[in-house]
């Protein structure tokens, strides 16, 4: 086989691999959602975050509006601090409430935002005060058993 054919084949091979890399990074992994549209970060304190993880979705009315960017533990208030990265096109009033829900019975957990009625909007660095912790199945069952026992 002559040199030119070999060069063309190798070129096609490398180009194919690059196309594969492009497809894997754009279509398969979430690289596209990383850069560019810098959202704003708001924080919320929860007593218990259950199985929430970094990159869990943040949604409002069922629509995905952002993702959890950081989870930390506050040594002073003894509560979990969840930072949420919200996409810039979505605006929420100052008195928005944040709750941790589970998608389905065994599904993943996500932060749900319920907008309030305030006229000012949340800005970067703001803290959401109204929060509701994750439902922990053991606690619910424990409470149920406890109340049953008291009835008898």
């Amino acid at each position: 086989m002559n040199t030119r054919t070999i060069e063309i084949m190798v070129g096609l091979f490398v180009a194919g691999a690059m196309a594969a890399l492009f497809m894997l990074s754009m279509k398969v992994s979430n690289l596209a959602s990383y850069g560019g549209d810098e959202g704003y970060v708001v924080k919320a304190q929860f007593d218990n975050i259950g199985g929430l993880k970094v990159r869990s979705p943040v949604s409002a009315g069922g629509v995905r509006v952002g993702k959890v960017s950081e989870i930390a533990y506050d040594n002073e208030s003894y509560a979990a601090v969840v930072s949420m990265d919200i996409e810039p096109q979505y605006k929420f009033p100052k008195d928005t409430a944040a709750s941790i829900y589970t998608a389905g019975l065994l599904g993943e957990q996500f932060v749900g935002l319920e907008p309030g009625g305030d006229e000012d909007f949340l800005k970067a660095g703001d803290v959401i005060d109204l929060t509701q912790s994750a439902l922990v199945l053991e606690q619910v069952i424990g409470q149920f058993l406890y109340s049953k026992a008291q009835e008898d």
């Binding site: 894997l24 990074s25 279509k27 398969v28 992994s29 979430n30 690289l31 596209a32 959602s33 990383y34 990159r55 979705p57």
Partner: peptide, 15 residues
């Protein structure tokens, strides 16, 4: 198919 994948597959950690 694509959205489930994009939601969970991480560029750095997986690819």
């Amino acid at each position: 198919f694509w959205s489930q994948m994009q939601a969970k597959v991480d560029f750095y950690e997986d690819l």
